[in-house]
Design a protein around this nucleic acid. Structure first.
Lengths: 110, 110
DNA sequence: AAAAAAGTTGAATTATATGGAAACTTTTAT
DNA sequence: ATAAAAGTTTCCATATAATTCAACTTTTTT
Protein backbone atom coordinates (compact mmCIF):
# COMPACT_ATOMS: atom_id res chain seq x y z
CA UNK A 1 0.00 0.00 0.00
CA UNK A 2 2.13 2.84 1.29
CA UNK A 3 5.09 3.44 -0.92
CA UNK A 4 8.67 3.77 0.10
CA UNK A 5 10.11 4.90 -3.19
CA UNK A 6 8.91 8.33 -3.99
CA UNK A 7 9.77 7.95 -7.63
CA UNK A 8 8.79 5.19 -9.96
CA UNK A 9 8.39 1.61 -9.16
CA UNK A 10 8.76 -1.00 -11.82
CA UNK A 11 8.52 -4.70 -11.83
CA UNK A 12 9.31 -7.66 -13.95
CA UNK A 13 6.63 -9.84 -15.31
CA UNK A 14 7.88 -12.72 -13.26
CA UNK A 15 7.77 -10.56 -10.24
CA UNK A 16 4.30 -9.53 -11.13
CA UNK A 17 3.37 -13.12 -11.47
CA UNK A 18 4.97 -13.85 -8.17
CA UNK A 19 2.83 -11.16 -6.72
CA UNK A 20 -0.22 -12.65 -8.26
CA UNK A 21 0.50 -15.97 -6.70
CA UNK A 22 1.52 -14.49 -3.43
CA UNK A 23 5.28 -14.01 -3.36
CA UNK A 24 5.58 -10.32 -2.76
CA UNK A 25 8.61 -8.30 -1.95
CA UNK A 26 11.28 -9.43 -4.30
CA UNK A 27 14.37 -7.27 -4.04
CA UNK A 28 15.03 -6.15 -7.56
CA UNK A 29 11.60 -4.87 -8.14
CA UNK A 30 12.87 -1.76 -9.68
CA UNK A 31 12.70 -1.76 -13.35
CA UNK A 32 11.62 -4.14 -15.97
CA UNK A 33 12.05 -4.54 -19.64
CA UNK A 34 11.04 -7.35 -21.84
CA UNK A 35 10.77 -8.17 -25.46
CA UNK A 36 7.63 -6.98 -27.01
CA UNK A 37 5.60 -10.11 -27.37
CA UNK A 38 1.90 -10.20 -27.59
CA UNK A 39 1.55 -13.17 -25.33
CA UNK A 40 2.97 -11.33 -22.41
CA UNK A 41 0.98 -8.20 -22.80
CA UNK A 42 -2.18 -9.49 -21.27
CA UNK A 43 -0.31 -10.60 -18.20
CA UNK A 44 1.07 -7.12 -17.88
CA UNK A 45 -2.34 -5.58 -17.96
CA UNK A 46 -3.68 -8.03 -15.47
CA UNK A 47 -0.79 -7.59 -13.12
CA UNK A 48 -0.89 -3.84 -13.15
CA UNK A 49 -4.62 -3.89 -12.74
CA UNK A 50 -4.28 -6.13 -9.71
CA UNK A 51 -1.59 -3.90 -8.37
CA UNK A 52 -4.13 -1.11 -8.60
CA UNK A 53 -6.68 -3.25 -6.86
CA UNK A 54 -9.16 -2.98 -9.62
CA UNK A 55 -11.61 -5.46 -10.98
CA UNK A 56 -11.96 -5.89 -14.69
CA UNK A 57 -15.25 -4.12 -14.43
CA UNK A 58 -13.71 -1.14 -12.70
CA UNK A 59 -10.92 -0.88 -15.19
CA UNK A 60 -13.43 -1.22 -17.95
CA UNK A 61 -15.47 1.62 -16.57
CA UNK A 62 -12.34 3.69 -16.38
CA UNK A 63 -11.77 3.46 -20.09
CA UNK A 64 -15.35 3.02 -21.12
CA UNK A 65 -15.60 -0.62 -22.06
CA UNK A 66 -17.26 -3.71 -20.67
CA UNK A 67 -15.46 -6.07 -18.36
CA UNK A 68 -15.58 -8.70 -21.03
CA UNK A 69 -13.36 -6.54 -23.15
CA UNK A 70 -10.79 -6.28 -20.41
CA UNK A 71 -10.92 -9.99 -19.97
CA UNK A 72 -10.21 -10.49 -23.62
CA UNK A 73 -7.32 -8.11 -23.56
CA UNK A 74 -5.82 -9.84 -20.58
CA UNK A 75 -6.32 -13.24 -22.06
CA UNK A 76 -4.84 -12.03 -25.29
CA UNK A 77 -7.11 -13.74 -27.66
CA UNK A 78 -6.18 -11.33 -30.39
CA UNK A 79 -3.55 -9.06 -31.69
CA UNK A 80 -3.67 -5.62 -30.15
CA UNK A 81 -3.19 -2.10 -31.41
CA UNK A 82 -0.92 0.42 -29.81
CA UNK A 83 -3.86 2.63 -29.17
CA UNK A 84 -5.48 -0.01 -27.04
CA UNK A 85 -2.32 -0.63 -25.10
CA UNK A 86 -1.97 3.04 -24.39
CA UNK A 87 -5.58 3.42 -23.44
CA UNK A 88 -5.39 0.64 -20.90
CA UNK A 89 -2.10 1.49 -19.29
CA UNK A 90 -2.92 5.12 -19.25
CA UNK A 91 -6.04 4.35 -17.28
CA UNK A 92 -3.84 2.39 -14.93
CA UNK A 93 -1.52 5.35 -14.60
CA UNK A 94 1.31 3.33 -15.92
CA UNK A 95 3.82 4.57 -18.42
CA UNK A 96 4.53 2.41 -21.35
CA UNK A 97 7.85 2.89 -22.97
CA UNK A 98 9.45 1.09 -25.73
CA UNK A 99 12.83 0.91 -27.26
CA UNK A 100 14.40 -0.35 -30.38
CA UNK A 101 17.63 -2.16 -30.23
CA UNK A 102 19.56 -2.56 -33.39
CA UNK A 103 22.18 -5.16 -33.86
CA UNK A 104 24.52 -3.48 -36.28
CA UNK A 105 26.57 -6.41 -37.36
CA UNK A 106 23.67 -8.64 -38.00
CA UNK A 107 22.45 -6.92 -41.09
CA UNK A 108 24.14 -7.36 -44.39
CA UNK A 109 22.97 -5.37 -47.30
CA UNK A 110 24.00 -7.22 -50.37
CA UNK B 1 16.20 -16.29 -20.17
CA UNK B 2 17.23 -14.05 -22.98
CA UNK B 3 20.55 -12.43 -22.32
CA UNK B 4 22.13 -9.46 -23.90
CA UNK B 5 24.00 -10.09 -27.09
CA UNK B 6 27.48 -8.80 -27.40
CA UNK B 7 27.19 -5.85 -29.70
CA UNK B 8 24.01 -3.93 -29.63
CA UNK B 9 23.71 -0.43 -30.84
CA UNK B 10 20.82 1.71 -29.85
CA UNK B 11 19.90 5.23 -30.57
CA UNK B 12 17.56 7.95 -29.53
CA UNK B 13 14.92 9.22 -31.82
CA UNK B 14 16.49 12.63 -31.84
CA UNK B 15 19.74 11.06 -32.79
CA UNK B 16 18.00 9.17 -35.51
CA UNK B 17 16.46 12.35 -36.71
CA UNK B 18 19.82 14.03 -36.57
CA UNK B 19 21.11 11.28 -38.72
CA UNK B 20 18.29 11.73 -41.15
CA UNK B 21 19.03 15.38 -41.51
CA UNK B 22 22.73 14.88 -41.63
CA UNK B 23 24.19 15.16 -38.15
CA UNK B 24 25.82 11.82 -37.67
CA UNK B 25 28.04 10.66 -34.89
CA UNK B 26 26.43 11.94 -31.74
CA UNK B 27 28.22 10.68 -28.64
CA UNK B 28 25.50 9.06 -26.57
CA UNK B 29 24.24 6.87 -29.31
CA UNK B 30 24.00 3.94 -27.05
CA UNK B 31 20.61 3.20 -25.82
CA UNK B 32 17.25 4.70 -26.29
CA UNK B 33 13.91 4.57 -24.66
CA UNK B 34 10.91 6.67 -25.26
CA UNK B 35 7.30 6.78 -24.42
CA UNK B 36 5.31 4.62 -26.65
CA UNK B 37 3.51 7.11 -28.74
CA UNK B 38 2.15 6.32 -32.10
CA UNK B 39 3.38 9.51 -33.62
CA UNK B 40 6.93 8.54 -33.06
CA UNK B 41 6.69 5.02 -34.30
CA UNK B 42 6.87 5.82 -37.95
CA UNK B 43 10.00 7.82 -37.40
CA UNK B 44 11.53 4.83 -35.71
CA UNK B 45 10.79 2.60 -38.64
CA UNK B 46 12.08 5.11 -41.09
CA UNK B 47 15.23 5.75 -39.17
CA UNK B 48 16.10 2.13 -38.69
CA UNK B 49 15.33 1.43 -42.30
CA UNK B 50 17.66 4.20 -43.36
CA UNK B 51 20.27 2.89 -41.00
CA UNK B 52 19.95 -0.37 -42.87
CA UNK B 53 20.25 1.45 -46.14
CA UNK B 54 17.01 0.14 -47.47
CA UNK B 55 14.40 1.75 -49.63
CA UNK B 56 10.76 1.41 -48.72
CA UNK B 57 10.43 -0.94 -51.60
CA UNK B 58 13.23 -3.16 -50.36
CA UNK B 59 11.86 -3.25 -46.87
CA UNK B 60 8.47 -3.96 -48.29
CA UNK B 61 9.81 -6.86 -50.26
CA UNK B 62 11.47 -8.15 -47.13
CA UNK B 63 8.18 -8.49 -45.34
CA UNK B 64 6.02 -9.04 -48.35
CA UNK B 65 4.16 -5.78 -48.77
CA UNK B 66 4.14 -2.91 -51.22
CA UNK B 67 6.26 0.13 -50.70
CA UNK B 68 3.10 2.16 -50.26
CA UNK B 69 2.40 0.17 -47.17
CA UNK B 70 5.77 1.00 -45.69
CA UNK B 71 5.18 4.61 -46.51
CA UNK B 72 1.92 4.50 -44.64
CA UNK B 73 3.51 2.96 -41.62
CA UNK B 74 6.29 5.50 -41.57
CA UNK B 75 3.92 8.36 -42.04
CA UNK B 76 1.68 6.99 -39.37
CA UNK B 77 -1.55 7.39 -41.14
CA UNK B 78 -3.13 4.77 -38.99
CA UNK B 79 -2.96 3.09 -35.70
CA UNK B 80 -0.73 0.03 -35.71
CA UNK B 81 -0.95 -3.44 -34.29
CA UNK B 82 1.82 -5.05 -32.34
CA UNK B 83 2.08 -7.70 -34.95
CA UNK B 84 2.88 -5.14 -37.60
CA UNK B 85 5.48 -3.48 -35.44
CA UNK B 86 7.12 -6.79 -34.82
CA UNK B 87 7.02 -7.76 -38.45
CA UNK B 88 8.72 -4.60 -39.54
CA UNK B 89 11.40 -4.39 -36.91
CA UNK B 90 12.09 -8.05 -37.17
CA UNK B 91 12.75 -7.61 -40.86
CA UNK B 92 15.10 -4.83 -39.92
CA UNK B 93 16.84 -7.11 -37.45
CA UNK B 94 15.97 -4.82 -34.64
CA UNK B 95 14.69 -5.88 -31.28
CA UNK B 96 11.72 -4.15 -29.89
CA UNK B 97 11.37 -4.16 -26.17
CA UNK B 98 8.88 -2.57 -24.00
CA UNK B 99 8.48 -1.78 -20.39
CA UNK B 100 5.77 -0.69 -18.08
CA UNK B 101 6.50 1.83 -15.44
CA UNK B 102 4.09 2.20 -12.62
CA UNK B 103 3.88 5.26 -10.51
CA UNK B 104 2.67 3.87 -7.23
CA UNK B 105 1.61 6.99 -5.50
CA UNK B 106 -0.31 8.38 -8.36
CA UNK B 107 -3.21 6.04 -8.14
CA UNK B 108 -5.90 6.49 -5.60
CA UNK B 109 -8.52 3.86 -5.27
CA UNK B 110 -11.56 5.56 -3.85
C1' DA C 1 -23.35 -24.48 0.92
C1' DA C 2 -25.63 -20.72 -1.03
C1' DA C 3 -25.15 -16.07 -2.70
C1' DA C 4 -22.55 -12.58 -4.69
C1' DA C 5 -18.83 -10.96 -7.17
C1' DA C 6 -15.42 -11.54 -10.54
C1' DG C 7 -13.99 -13.37 -14.64
C1' DT C 8 -14.71 -15.95 -19.17
C1' DT C 9 -16.79 -17.18 -23.53
C1' DG C 10 -19.51 -17.12 -27.87
C1' DA C 11 -22.02 -14.86 -31.25
C1' DA C 12 -22.80 -10.86 -33.53
C1' DT C 13 -21.69 -6.07 -35.01
C1' DT C 14 -18.96 -2.08 -35.96
C1' DA C 15 -14.76 0.14 -36.72
C1' DT C 16 -10.53 0.21 -38.63
C1' DA C 17 -5.90 -1.76 -39.77
C1' DT C 18 -3.72 -4.15 -43.53
C1' DG C 19 -2.93 -4.34 -48.09
C1' DG C 20 -2.67 -3.78 -53.43
C1' DA C 21 -2.68 -0.91 -57.64
C1' DA C 22 -1.91 2.96 -59.92
C1' DA C 23 -1.36 7.73 -60.34
C1' DC C 24 1.01 11.30 -58.49
C1' DT C 25 5.01 14.11 -56.23
C1' DT C 26 9.49 14.64 -54.57
C1' DT C 27 14.23 13.51 -54.59
C1' DT C 28 18.35 11.96 -56.65
C1' DA C 29 21.06 10.92 -60.14
C1' DT C 30 22.78 11.62 -65.07
C1' DA D 1 17.05 19.63 -67.58
C1' DT D 2 15.58 15.01 -67.94
C1' DA D 3 15.13 10.60 -66.52
C1' DA D 4 14.98 7.38 -62.97
C1' DA D 5 14.26 6.18 -58.36
C1' DA D 6 12.11 6.82 -54.11
C1' DG D 7 8.34 8.14 -51.62
C1' DT D 8 3.33 9.59 -51.15
C1' DT D 9 -1.57 9.49 -51.78
C1' DT D 10 -6.16 7.97 -53.11
C1' DC D 11 -9.43 4.56 -53.93
C1' DC D 12 -10.73 0.29 -52.84
C1' DA D 13 -11.22 -4.53 -50.85
C1' DT D 14 -10.49 -7.68 -47.17
C1' DA D 15 -9.18 -9.17 -42.73
C1' DT D 16 -9.45 -8.60 -38.18
C1' DA D 17 -9.37 -5.71 -33.84
C1' DA D 18 -12.63 -3.50 -30.76
C1' DT D 19 -16.65 -3.89 -28.66
C1' DT D 20 -21.36 -5.35 -26.52
C1' DC D 21 -24.66 -8.48 -24.53
C1' DA D 22 -25.97 -12.28 -22.25
C1' DA D 23 -25.15 -16.62 -20.60
C1' DC D 24 -21.91 -19.26 -18.39
C1' DT D 25 -17.96 -20.62 -14.98
C1' DT D 26 -14.92 -19.68 -11.35
C1' DT D 27 -13.71 -17.45 -7.20
C1' DT D 28 -14.74 -15.19 -3.04
C1' DT D 29 -17.66 -14.06 0.76
C1' DT D 30 -20.98 -14.86 4.21
Amino acid sequence: MATKNKKMKMMTLDQMKDKDIGKVGTPERDKYEFDLRMEVLGDMIKSVRKERNLTQEQLGKLIGVQKSQISKLERNTKNVTIETILKVFSALKANVRFSVEMNESEFKVA
